[in-house]
Amino acid sequence: MADKIRVLVAKPGLDGHDRGAKVIARAFRDAGFEVIYTGLRQTPEQIVAAAIQEDVDVVAMSLLSGAHGTLMPKVVKLLKEKGADDKLVIGGGVIPDDDIPALKEAGVAEVFTPGTPTSVPIEFIKTHVKK
């Protein structure tokens, strides 16, 4: 049996809109992934602690508040500090195209914006997770 892909779906920061996170969590489930959903309003520290304890392959963050430039790089940095930088970090939400290069520079592997079919991040994960 192939090792199961585990994904943390996280909502960092203060926005309370988790419809997108739930849609993507459901799509990941149907793709055969084990999805750990953190719930709303998580700090980067909480997300990293959960990612480590759950030993996920992917940290997927959904962010609609505009704070992506601060919170996403912070998660990448903390993962590195804790010796857990083997995880694929991806982001999604209302993120302006102009901000994406800086996020990638900071270690976010890919950013998915509104209108992306759920099959796209699923394929991205299957391709990039080393199993």
Partner: peptide, 22 residues
């Protein structure tokens, strides 16, 4: 529970235990 069809799962118990993560 894992899905009997895809083997996927939504593991949501952590949501109630957020404060304990740290």
């Amino acid at each position: 529970p894992s899905s009997p069809f895809t083997g996927g799962a939504i593991l949501g118990d952590r949501i109630r235990m957020s404060d304990l993560s740290l």
